[in-house]
Amino acid sequence: MLEIRHLKTLLALREHGSLVAAASDLCLTPSAISHQLKELDHWYGVEVVNRRSRPVSFSQVGQRLLKLADEMIPQLQIAHTDITRIVHGQTGRIIFSSECHSCFDWLMPLLNQYRQQYPDVDLDFASGFEANPHELLQHSEFDLLITADPIALKGIEYFAIFEYESRLVLSQTHPLVRAESISVQDLAEETLITYPVDKHRLDIMAKLFIPANIQPKSIRTTDLTQMLIQLVASGRGVAALPDWVVNEYEQKGWVTSRRLDCVAQEGLRRTLYAGFRTEDKDKGYFDGFLKQLAKFSQKRQSYYH
Protein backbone atom coordinates (compact mmCIF):
# COMPACT_ATOMS: atom_id res chain seq x y z
CA MET A 1 0.00 0.00 0.00
CA LEU A 2 1.23 3.48 -0.85
CA GLU A 3 2.43 5.36 2.25
CA ILE A 4 3.82 8.81 3.01
CA ARG A 5 7.31 7.33 3.43
CA HIS A 6 7.21 6.09 -0.17
CA LEU A 7 6.42 9.59 -1.46
CA LYS A 8 9.23 11.12 0.61
CA THR A 9 11.63 8.49 -0.76
CA LEU A 10 10.68 9.29 -4.37
CA LEU A 11 11.26 13.01 -3.76
CA ALA A 12 14.65 12.32 -2.21
CA LEU A 13 15.62 10.10 -5.18
CA ARG A 14 14.65 12.83 -7.64
CA GLU A 15 16.62 15.41 -5.70
CA HIS A 16 19.80 13.39 -5.17
CA GLY A 17 19.75 11.00 -8.13
CA SER A 18 21.00 7.88 -6.29
CA LEU A 19 19.90 5.44 -3.62
CA VAL A 20 22.97 6.12 -1.48
CA ALA A 21 22.49 9.90 -1.40
CA ALA A 22 18.70 9.61 -0.88
CA ALA A 23 19.23 7.12 1.95
CA SER A 24 21.67 9.48 3.65
CA ASP A 25 19.19 12.39 3.37
CA LEU A 26 16.38 10.27 4.86
CA CYS A 27 18.61 8.72 7.56
CA LEU A 28 17.99 5.24 6.07
CA THR A 29 20.18 2.55 4.56
CA PRO A 30 20.36 2.01 0.77
CA SER A 31 18.86 -1.46 1.31
CA ALA A 32 15.86 0.11 3.08
CA ILE A 33 15.34 2.43 0.08
CA SER A 34 15.63 -0.54 -2.28
CA HIS A 35 13.07 -2.45 -0.21
CA GLN A 36 10.59 0.46 -0.45
CA LEU A 37 10.97 0.58 -4.23
CA LYS A 38 10.32 -3.17 -4.46
CA GLU A 39 7.15 -2.64 -2.45
CA LEU A 40 5.98 -0.03 -4.98
CA ASP A 41 6.90 -2.23 -7.96
CA HIS A 42 4.96 -5.13 -6.44
CA TRP A 43 1.98 -2.96 -5.58
CA TYR A 44 1.61 -1.40 -9.05
CA GLY A 45 2.95 -4.34 -11.05
CA VAL A 46 5.48 -2.18 -12.95
CA GLU A 47 8.90 -0.73 -12.25
CA VAL A 48 8.47 2.70 -10.65
CA VAL A 49 12.16 3.74 -10.58
CA ASN A 50 14.96 2.65 -12.89
CA ARG A 51 17.77 2.15 -10.36
CA ARG A 52 20.28 1.17 -13.03
CA SER A 53 20.41 4.58 -14.69
CA ARG A 54 22.66 7.40 -13.45
CA PRO A 55 20.96 9.41 -12.13
CA VAL A 56 17.98 7.23 -11.40
CA SER A 57 15.01 7.77 -13.72
CA PHE A 58 11.27 7.41 -13.22
CA SER A 59 8.72 5.46 -15.22
CA GLN A 60 5.37 7.00 -16.17
CA VAL A 61 3.93 5.58 -12.93
CA GLY A 62 6.87 7.03 -11.02
CA GLN A 63 6.29 10.46 -12.59
CA ARG A 64 2.64 10.36 -11.51
CA LEU A 65 3.65 9.45 -7.96
CA LEU A 66 6.14 12.33 -7.94
CA LYS A 67 3.34 14.70 -8.92
CA LEU A 68 1.28 13.35 -6.04
CA ALA A 69 4.23 13.78 -3.68
CA ASP A 70 4.70 17.41 -4.81
CA GLU A 71 1.08 18.11 -3.91
CA MET A 72 0.81 16.18 -0.67
CA ILE A 73 4.13 16.55 1.17
CA PRO A 74 4.07 20.40 1.39
CA GLN A 75 0.48 20.26 2.68
CA LEU A 76 1.48 17.68 5.28
CA GLN A 77 4.35 19.90 6.40
CA ILE A 78 2.04 22.91 6.72
CA ALA A 79 -0.48 20.85 8.69
CA HIS A 80 2.30 19.57 10.96
CA THR A 81 3.47 23.13 11.63
CA ASP A 82 -0.09 24.30 12.34
CA ILE A 83 -0.74 21.40 14.69
CA THR A 84 2.51 22.08 16.54
CA ARG A 85 1.52 25.72 17.00
CA ILE A 86 -1.92 24.68 18.27
CA VAL A 87 -0.46 22.15 20.73
CA HIS A 88 2.02 24.74 22.04
CA GLY A 89 -0.63 27.46 22.32
CA GLN A 90 0.58 29.63 19.45
CA THR A 91 -2.73 29.92 17.66
CA GLY A 92 -6.27 30.72 18.74
CA ARG A 93 -8.68 33.63 19.12
CA ILE A 94 -9.04 36.46 21.64
CA ILE A 95 -12.28 38.47 21.67
CA PHE A 96 -12.05 41.78 23.50
CA SER A 97 -14.74 43.88 25.14
CA SER A 98 -14.29 47.27 26.76
CA GLU A 99 -16.28 49.45 29.11
CA CYS A 100 -13.86 52.24 28.25
CA HIS A 101 -14.82 54.00 25.01
CA SER A 102 -11.44 55.72 24.65
CA CYS A 103 -9.23 52.74 25.53
CA PHE A 104 -8.55 52.04 21.86
CA ASP A 105 -6.06 54.93 21.90
CA TRP A 106 -3.54 52.79 23.81
CA LEU A 107 -4.96 49.31 23.15
CA MET A 108 -4.65 49.28 19.35
CA PRO A 109 -0.85 49.91 19.28
CA LEU A 110 -0.49 47.15 21.89
CA LEU A 111 -2.47 44.72 19.70
CA ASN A 112 -0.34 45.61 16.67
CA GLN A 113 2.78 44.65 18.65
CA TYR A 114 1.14 41.41 19.78
CA ARG A 115 0.27 40.43 16.19
CA GLN A 116 3.96 40.51 15.28
CA GLN A 117 4.71 37.85 17.88
CA TYR A 118 1.50 35.81 17.44
CA PRO A 119 0.48 36.20 13.78
CA ASP A 120 -1.78 33.13 13.90
CA VAL A 121 -3.98 34.46 16.71
CA ASP A 122 -7.26 36.01 15.56
CA LEU A 123 -8.05 39.24 17.46
CA ASP A 124 -11.63 40.48 17.48
CA PHE A 125 -13.91 42.83 19.39
CA ALA A 126 -17.37 42.27 20.82
CA SER A 127 -19.89 44.56 19.20
CA GLY A 128 -21.28 47.41 21.28
CA PHE A 129 -21.32 47.98 25.03
CA GLU A 130 -22.96 45.18 27.00
CA ALA A 131 -25.21 45.69 30.02
CA ASN A 132 -23.59 42.87 32.04
CA PRO A 133 -20.09 42.40 30.58
CA HIS A 134 -18.58 40.64 33.62
CA GLU A 135 -21.15 37.86 33.49
CA LEU A 136 -20.73 37.57 29.73
CA LEU A 137 -16.99 37.19 30.26
CA GLN A 138 -17.67 34.45 32.79
CA HIS A 139 -19.88 32.67 30.23
CA SER A 140 -17.24 32.90 27.46
CA GLU A 141 -19.06 35.43 25.28
CA PHE A 142 -15.67 37.15 24.97
CA ASP A 143 -12.22 36.56 26.45
CA LEU A 144 -10.86 39.81 27.88
CA LEU A 145 -12.70 42.78 29.39
CA ILE A 146 -11.25 46.27 29.88
CA THR A 147 -13.03 47.78 32.88
CA ALA A 148 -12.63 50.21 35.78
CA ASP A 149 -15.11 48.27 37.91
CA PRO A 150 -13.93 44.73 38.70
CA ILE A 151 -16.57 42.39 40.09
CA ALA A 152 -15.72 39.27 42.11
CA LEU A 153 -16.97 36.31 40.10
CA LYS A 154 -16.03 32.65 40.17
CA GLY A 155 -13.30 31.82 37.66
CA ILE A 156 -12.59 35.48 36.80
CA GLU A 157 -9.33 37.34 37.54
CA TYR A 158 -8.48 41.01 37.11
CA PHE A 159 -5.12 42.47 36.20
CA ALA A 160 -4.49 46.14 37.12
CA ILE A 161 -3.24 47.84 33.96
CA PHE A 162 -2.74 51.44 35.12
CA GLU A 163 -4.23 54.24 37.18
CA TYR A 164 -5.64 57.32 35.48
CA GLU A 165 -7.33 60.60 36.34
CA SER A 166 -10.70 61.48 34.88
CA ARG A 167 -10.54 65.23 34.20
CA LEU A 168 -13.23 67.83 33.53
CA VAL A 169 -12.94 69.04 29.93
CA LEU A 170 -13.97 72.62 29.10
CA SER A 171 -13.84 75.01 26.19
CA GLN A 172 -11.04 77.58 26.36
CA THR A 173 -13.59 80.32 27.05
CA HIS A 174 -15.79 78.50 29.57
CA PRO A 175 -16.35 80.52 32.80
CA LEU A 176 -15.34 77.53 34.94
CA VAL A 177 -11.82 77.69 33.50
CA ARG A 178 -11.15 80.69 35.75
CA ALA A 179 -13.19 79.55 38.76
CA GLU A 180 -11.23 79.08 42.01
CA SER A 181 -13.12 75.86 42.69
CA ILE A 182 -15.75 73.79 40.90
CA SER A 183 -18.59 72.14 42.80
CA VAL A 184 -21.07 69.49 41.77
CA GLN A 185 -23.73 72.22 41.91
CA ASP A 186 -21.77 74.20 39.30
CA LEU A 187 -21.68 71.17 37.02
CA ALA A 188 -25.40 70.54 37.53
CA GLU A 189 -25.99 73.67 35.43
CA GLU A 190 -24.10 72.18 32.48
CA THR A 191 -24.87 69.87 29.58
CA LEU A 192 -22.74 66.75 30.00
CA ILE A 193 -21.36 65.44 26.72
CA THR A 194 -20.39 61.80 26.88
CA TYR A 195 -20.40 58.44 25.16
CA PRO A 196 -23.69 56.51 24.75
CA VAL A 197 -23.24 54.13 27.68
CA ASP A 198 -25.17 53.50 30.88
CA LYS A 199 -24.66 56.46 33.23
CA HIS A 200 -23.48 54.18 36.04
CA ARG A 201 -20.47 53.29 33.89
CA LEU A 202 -19.41 56.92 33.44
CA ASP A 203 -16.76 58.04 35.95
CA ILE A 204 -18.26 61.48 36.54
CA MET A 205 -21.77 60.09 37.01
CA ALA A 206 -20.77 57.12 39.21
CA LYS A 207 -18.35 59.08 41.43
CA LEU A 208 -19.79 62.61 41.44
CA PHE A 209 -23.38 63.13 40.32
CA ILE A 210 -25.03 59.92 41.54
CA PRO A 211 -23.49 59.98 45.07
CA ALA A 212 -24.63 63.61 45.40
CA ASN A 213 -28.11 62.67 44.11
CA ILE A 214 -27.78 65.39 41.47
CA GLN A 215 -28.18 65.24 37.69
CA PRO A 216 -26.58 67.46 35.04
CA LYS A 217 -28.94 69.84 33.26
CA SER A 218 -28.92 67.51 30.24
CA ILE A 219 -26.85 64.75 28.70
CA ARG A 220 -25.76 64.69 25.05
CA THR A 221 -24.03 61.65 23.58
CA THR A 222 -21.72 60.90 20.69
CA ASP A 223 -19.78 57.78 19.67
CA LEU A 224 -16.65 59.61 18.51
CA THR A 225 -14.04 61.18 20.78
CA GLN A 226 -13.16 63.86 18.23
CA MET A 227 -16.81 64.86 17.90
CA LEU A 228 -17.11 64.98 21.70
CA ILE A 229 -14.07 67.26 21.88
CA GLN A 230 -15.46 69.45 19.10
CA LEU A 231 -18.78 69.87 20.92
CA VAL A 232 -16.96 70.87 24.12
CA ALA A 233 -14.64 73.24 22.25
CA SER A 234 -17.63 74.98 20.66
CA GLY A 235 -19.26 75.57 24.04
CA ARG A 236 -22.05 73.00 23.73
CA GLY A 237 -21.28 71.47 27.12
CA VAL A 238 -18.60 69.88 29.33
CA ALA A 239 -17.18 66.40 29.51
CA ALA A 240 -15.06 64.15 31.72
CA LEU A 241 -12.35 62.11 29.99
CA PRO A 242 -9.28 60.10 31.01
CA ASP A 243 -6.09 62.12 31.26
CA TRP A 244 -4.40 60.28 28.37
CA VAL A 245 -7.19 61.44 26.06
CA VAL A 246 -7.38 65.00 27.39
CA ASN A 247 -3.62 65.56 27.15
CA GLU A 248 -3.60 65.12 23.38
CA TYR A 249 -6.30 67.72 22.74
CA GLU A 250 -4.98 70.16 25.34
CA GLN A 251 -1.61 70.13 23.61
CA LYS A 252 -3.38 71.03 20.37
CA GLY A 253 -5.06 73.95 22.14
CA TRP A 254 -8.58 72.74 21.38
CA VAL A 255 -9.81 72.46 24.99
CA THR A 256 -8.60 72.85 28.54
CA SER A 257 -9.14 70.67 31.60
CA ARG A 258 -9.57 70.98 35.35
CA ARG A 259 -9.10 68.51 38.19
CA LEU A 260 -12.34 67.30 39.73
CA ASP A 261 -11.16 68.05 43.27
CA CYS A 262 -14.78 68.22 44.43
CA VAL A 263 -14.57 64.38 44.36
CA ALA A 264 -11.23 64.17 46.21
CA GLN A 265 -8.14 66.33 46.67
CA GLU A 266 -6.23 64.18 44.18
CA GLY A 267 -9.11 64.36 41.73
CA LEU A 268 -11.29 61.62 40.27
CA ARG A 269 -8.81 58.77 40.03
CA ARG A 270 -9.61 55.29 38.75
CA THR A 271 -7.71 52.11 37.95
CA LEU A 272 -8.19 50.32 34.66
CA TYR A 273 -8.27 46.52 34.78
CA ALA A 274 -8.18 43.63 32.35
CA GLY A 275 -10.59 40.88 33.34
CA PHE A 276 -10.18 37.32 32.05
CA ARG A 277 -11.05 33.71 32.85
CA THR A 278 -8.48 31.97 35.03
CA GLU A 279 -8.57 28.86 32.83
CA ASP A 280 -7.33 30.84 29.83
CA LYS A 281 -3.95 31.50 31.43
CA ASP A 282 -2.92 27.97 30.45
CA LYS A 283 -3.20 28.88 26.77
CA GLY A 284 0.19 29.94 25.48
CA TYR A 285 -1.08 32.67 23.18
CA PHE A 286 -3.32 34.16 25.91
CA ASP A 287 -0.54 34.06 28.50
CA GLY A 288 1.61 35.80 25.88
CA PHE A 289 -0.88 38.66 25.67
CA LEU A 290 -1.05 38.99 29.48
CA LYS A 291 2.75 39.19 29.64
CA GLN A 292 2.77 41.89 26.95
CA LEU A 293 0.05 43.75 28.86
CA ALA A 294 2.15 43.52 32.04
CA LYS A 295 5.17 44.92 30.21
CA PHE A 296 3.04 47.79 28.88
CA SER A 297 1.74 48.45 32.41
CA GLN A 298 5.24 48.59 33.89
CA LYS A 299 6.47 50.91 31.15
CA ARG A 300 3.49 53.24 31.60
CA GLN A 301 3.87 53.38 35.38
CA SER A 302 7.59 54.13 35.15
CA TYR A 303 6.89 56.87 32.58
CA TYR A 304 4.27 58.63 34.72
CA HIS A 305 6.16 58.21 37.99
Results as ranks from 00 to 15, higher is better:
I156A: 05
I214L: 05
Q226P: 11
A23T: 05
S140A: 08
S166V: 14
Y303R: 13
V87Q: 06
L272D: 01
K217E: 12
Y303G: 04
K154P: 09
G253R: 11
C262D: 00
L28R: 07
E163S: 15
V255M: 02
C262I: 01
L145V: 13
A131C: 04
T271I: 05
Q60A: 14
D122R: 11
E279W: 02
P211Y: 14
L202V: 10
E39Y: 02
H42Q: 12
Q185M: 04
W244L: 08
P211H: 15
P30H: 06
D261K: 10
Q185F: 06
R167T: 01
H134N: 15
R93Y: 05
Y273M: 01
F296Y: 13
Y304L: 07
P55H: 04
V56D: 00
M108Q: 15
E250C: 05
Q138G: 12
S59T: 07
Q226A: 06
A206C: 07
L290H: 11
P119C: 03
Y304E: 10
G89S: 07
K38T: 13
Q292P: 05
E165M: 12
N50G: 05
G253T: 09
F58I: 04
S34M: 04
V87L: 14
Y164M: 01
V20Q: 04
L145D: 10
S218Q: 13
I83Q: 13
Q292Y: 09
P30Q: 07
I156V: 15
H139Q: 11
F276T: 03
Q251S: 03
Q117V: 10
R277G: 02
V263Q: 00
H134Q: 13
V56S: 00
I73A: 00
K283W: 10
Q116F: 05
C100A: 15
V246H: 01
F96R: 09
D124V: 12
P216V: 03
I146A: 07
C100R: 15
V87D: 03
G275N: 08
V184Q: 01
T9V: 13
K217L: 03
Q36R: 15
V56E: 01
T256E: 06
G237N: 01
V169C: 09
Y44L: 03
S102V: 09
W106V: 00
Y118P: 10
L268S: 04
K38E: 08
R115K: 14
W254A: 07
E71F: 13
R259Q: 10
F104V: 06
V245H: 02
K207R: 07
Q77L: 09
D149M: 08
H134W: 13
W43H: 10
E165L: 12
L136G: 06
C103Y: 15
Q301N: 09
E3C: 02
L40A: 02
G128Q: 06
L123W: 08
E39T: 11
H88K: 15
A294N: 14
R277N: 03
I210A: 03
H42E: 06
F286V: 06
G267K: 08
M227E: 07
K291R: 15
F104T: 15
H139S: 12
K295R: 05
L268H: 05
D41S: 01
R115M: 05
E190I: 07
L65R: 08
V61Y: 06
S24Q: 06
A79I: 08
G92W: 11
H305T: 09
V49A: 00
P150A: 06
Q90G: 01
Q117F: 11
S127M: 11
C262Q: 01
F129Q: 04
D287I: 00
L13C: 09
K281A: 04
G237A: 02
Y195D: 02
A152H: 14
I33A: 00
C262E: 00
S257Q: 12
